[in-house]
């Protein structure tokens, strides 16, 4: 009896799950679809599901200063992520493999910095950046994004290091390897996939960040600031907006899909695996 009832419920639940999933994805699908429409088709009533697609908007993206913003975005994302990894690996090492005294307090200090709204620090950050002539440069974004992502990276990398079997370290002891060699030649290769997911996650956060970018930079800035400028263009640009939005989301969505396996761990500071 139990089985018969569930044989009706199960397909129903599957259908409901698909409906929910599609509702979640519809805005994205609609965005992609709109990006291939002409502006007239994009605002037609009723909305058109079938139309003759055009690549015009993708061609037009590069007409204005998109390329320079994209370059800054790529530079800032890549450099800040690289620095994050270079700083986070030794830090995680000192908190896991060879733990310093009070390592637990240090870890909780790192996580607590993520709970503090950055808005509370924006005025001094702005003024210091101005004093050092760093406003409207990629350097200032690299600095703030590095510190923004460091706590997350340290927690995430630490969670991968904790999983290294103990025997490895015993072997190292026998081998008598120095600390730096131990870190670079033994630990890093073991957690390479973890480092890759950590880097991808940090890259996503840097790529998407808006608050700091819009307050510290204007013309030499990242893509979110570029996108914001579309606001002043008015409604006739729905399809153009969709094309730009689609294009700049391709890298992060791919990064997210690639990092899927370790994503949960990263987003929860290593708490959930």
């Amino acid at each position: 009896m139990n089985r018969r009832r569930s044989s009706i419920i199960d397909p129903l639940l599957t259908v409901l799950t698909w409906v929910g999933t599609l509702v979640m994805f519809t805005p994205i699908a609609w965005m992609i679809l709109t990006s291939f429409k002409t502006e007239e088709d994009a605002v037609s009533y009723p909305p058109k599901l079938f139309f003759s697609p055009t690549l015009d908007h993708y061609r037009r993206i590069f007409e204005n200063d998109f390329a320079s913003f994209a370059t800054v975005s790529i530079l800032v994302t890549v450099i800040s992520t690289a620095i994050v990894i270079v700083l986070a690996v030794p830090a995680a090492f000192a908190l896991t493999v060879r733990p310093v005294p009070k390592w637990r307090d240090v870890l909780f200090f790192f996580i607590s910095t993520k709970m503090m709204p950055i808005a509370a620090g924006i005025v001094p950050i702005y003024l210091v950046a101005r004093a050092f002539d760093l406003l409207n440069t990629s350097t200032v974004l690299v600095i703030v994004y590095t510190s923004m992502n460091l706590p997350l990276a340290i927690w995430m990398i630490r969670s991968f290091m904790v999983e290294i079997p103990r025997d490895v370290f015993d072997a190292v002891a026998v081998d008598g390897a120095g600390r730096i060699r131990e870190m670079v030649q033994i630990i890093v290769p073991l957690i390479k996939p973890g480092l890759a997911s950590t880097a991808l996650l940090c890259a996503i956060f840097a790529w998407n960040e808006f608050f700091l970018a819009v307050n510290l930079t204007t013309t030499v800035s990242t893509l979110p600031v570029f996108l914001q400028k579309f606001l002043s263009f008015g409604k006739l640009y729905t399809a153009q907006v969709a094309a730009v939005a689609t294009l700049i989301n391709i890298p992060v969505v791919i990064a997210g899909w690639l990092a899927q396996k370790s994503l949960t761990r990263g987003l929860t500071f290593g708490a959930v695996k």
């Binding site: 709109t34 996503i204 996108l227 729905t238 939005a245 989301n249 899927q260 994503l263």
Partner: peptide
């Protein structure tokens, strides 16, 4: 299904907001 359902999280918030504004929430279009 899982991959599609988690995708909104990766979307750049500015891009999401901009497209929702013009393509989804807009009263006429």
């Amino acid at each position: 299904a899982r991959t599609l359902a988690i995708t909104p999280f990766f979307i750049m918030p500015v891009a999401a907001a901009l497209f929702w504004k013009t393509g989804i929430f807009d009263p006429t279009f």
